[in-house]
Design a protein around this nucleic acid. Structure first.
Lengths: 234, 234, 234, 234
DNA sequence: AATGAATGAGAGTTCATTCAT
DNA sequence: GATGAATGAACTCTCATTCAT
């Protein structure tokens, strides 16, 4: 169903997608709003009906990714109870997310430095919350004796870039299927956590949820808000 | 004693240092040559007595780091004979290098995309040579039975970002001394390689060599160079 | 009445006029776009809403002049039938054009070398077409016996600069009226062609046509143009 | 024999030649002193041992050409007595000079506008003296009845660009030998002057003089003069 | 005479952003 | 919502020129 105002919605979504692609390709600083507008198919001026500025655009994109990621952790990881399954679910989700939304995640790690300090703090706070989750799971597992890690903090600092690295080289249709990929990384993650390897498949059943909920309605800080004006359609 | 031309040498070195810092801080695209010149203490124009252009500057920096890294691998890693020691030396050198020359290495991983395609290929070739070394060591160790890795290629793809991650957060004077840091990463690396942990210290004695030989004389492609031109005396 | 978009049109025309004057005065290389913008009364950046670059600007100007000149030859010279009248009309038109549009024509002969090789070839092709017309008329007249020239090719090479020279020193309101000027040059041209002098006035009746049609709508290669783009609405 | 100081002489000559070529090729404004220095085979700084500046260089070149031209007129044209021979000698010399020293003469007509007003006036004065010579010969010939020209002033304004045009397209080894070329232009010039054609060869015997005397010792306004410093060579 | 390093101004061009229509 | 034109600041890079060595 196509609601009133949906033309603008289409444009906003197109801006989001094109922006992510362009930033992933050239970097945020190197991408010009002219390029973006041209790829979207509108003029530079029209862009400002949808975004508040270049900085707000970047923040909107990064904020949405982090929100989506945290939402997924809540529903797919923390819904489990024992730390081992949580750990496996975390690793699995991380890679799933980092392959599904390669470019979103790429810019979320690469372009942090292009945020102004205010926005930077906000995003870092979200990132810390994400990493703290992994840290808590690891510690919990150590207490219950299923994990054995000398230095939890350092383990997280090692695990995250290892897992995130996937988004740098992954291309669908490569040598390994995505599930095979996840299994390999699960193996590595488990030995790093000092867990004895499980016999059967390491894959956890994850409920199928919407991983792009926030991205789809990301707020780019446009002054003239969508839906803000009442329409007289008599 | 101050030889003729040494002023220029000083300036060139200063440019190198300031450029690395500025790029690490703001990113290559976001750094302006005006900024750089100001920090060095000369005019923008004078910069061009030492560099061929912004692109050449970046390439010069990255090329020098990679050369230094490869030289270090040759003298510090491949000088050992058994794969286990080589592996330990590799990990140790990697972290040493990535903490010693944090910024150099940061830009060498972050700013690859700002290279033009020709220069990109050259640097990637060097990076591949570096990673191939690790790959070869792992394979060698698997054959001799001291390592046990399911998928060597993937192990390298997991190890490298894990180790490189250090340069993102390391600050001297932190919770761990650098040697402690290295020991922790050695542990992790050894379990990833499927090696039985050694009892005593994992640290390998590395000879003290010059890790910045190439950086110090990096070529930034300045046109007005120190060498001969033929004269037209028809 | 002032239609939408007419502001831009005005600006474009003003750019054309000012550019021609400035180039005629200082030479293309010596004219800066800042100067041009200032004379037009806009910022340097705004210039790029109308031109694609300095080179495209020059090409646009030269192309328009040549097009106008060739169009005039078609309608005012080749409309006559006998070679003698054609010849007279050619000379008359040439001087008329070179006095009417002194500056346009001045830069079209002086600034050819500032064109890049691609554009150079295009303009030279037009110039050759123009000169070939004169050559053909002369040859035709020789065949029908009203002209007598030893070396047609050389006659053209001598005639053209002789006639074009006018644009170097002509100023309206000088010693001779323009029609007197044309009569004098007609005399010279006729003896060079080896034609017996006509008794009465040498002036040919030329229809009054628009000599600046192309100049008025010259294309300066602006990227942000008036026409469609496709939209990305995946 | 190689005199003391001749190394500097060689350099100065090389500068002259290279400058003429570069200016003819790219135009004065478009030629950079760096280019010039590079072609000569010295550094930009060293250039200033020989020239006073870019403007002085141009003036030096143009002044020398005009001096050479006027000297040639004195010795080769005005040495004759009757206006017909003088006229023929003038045309002949003009073309000879404009083919011999194509580039020198090209820049002397093209780059006048790059002179500052003071230098411009000086060169124009020399050019006027040259053209006045032709004017005087024509008038003299009219008085003695061998020429018949309606408007002497205009005849000169037509003749000069016609003859000078040669330097735009002439290349040695073309369709016509230089003497044939001169003969053709002599024919044209004579009918323009209204003289009855001579039967035999139109070529005048011109004494073989040095046409580059001034060019060879052109003064480019260098502050540190050549030979100005005394040498102690004990 | 020549070098190499510097200056300071200015080049063409692109940028994010604004705004009347 | 979109357009086309404008701004003003910034960019990389080149220029003629100077000067200690």
């Amino acid at each position: 169903m196509r609601t009133i105002g949906s033309i603008g919605e289409e444009t906003a979504k197109s801006i989001r997608r094109c922006a992510v692609d362009l930033i992933a390709e050239h970097g945020f600083e190197a991408m010009s709003l002219r390029q973006l507008a041209e790829r979207v198919g509108i003029t530079t001026g029209a862009l400002y009906n949808h975004i508040g500025g270049k900085q707000e655009l970047l923040f909107g994109l990064l904020h949405a990714v982090m929100q989506d990621l945290l939402a997924a952790v809540d529903s797919q990881v923390l819904s489990h109870l024992d730390p081992l399954t949580q750990y496996q679910a975390f690793v699995q989700l991380h890679i799933q997310f980092h392959t599904d939304r390669k470019n979103d995640v790429l810019i979320a790690t690469t372009e942090l430095r292009s945020l102004n300090s205010e926005n930077y703090k906000k995003i870092i706070k979200l990132r810390n919350r994400y990493e703290a989750t992994l840290s808590r799971i690891l510690k919990h597992g150590c207490r219950t004796g299923i994990f054995s890690v000398t230095d939890t903090k350092l383990a997280v600092l090692a695990l995250i870039p290892m897992l995130t690295g996937v988004s740098q080289w992954y291309r669908p249709g490569g040598r390994l299927s995505r599930n095979e990929l996840i299994e390999r990384y699960l193996e590595l993650s488990l030995v790093i956590a000092g867990a004895s390897r499980k016999k059967s498949s390491l894959l956890v059943e994850l409920p199928d949820i919407d991983l792009e909920a926030n991205a789809r309605t990301a707020d780019f800080g446009a002054k003239r808000r969508r839906f803000a004006r009442s329409r007289d359609l008599r």
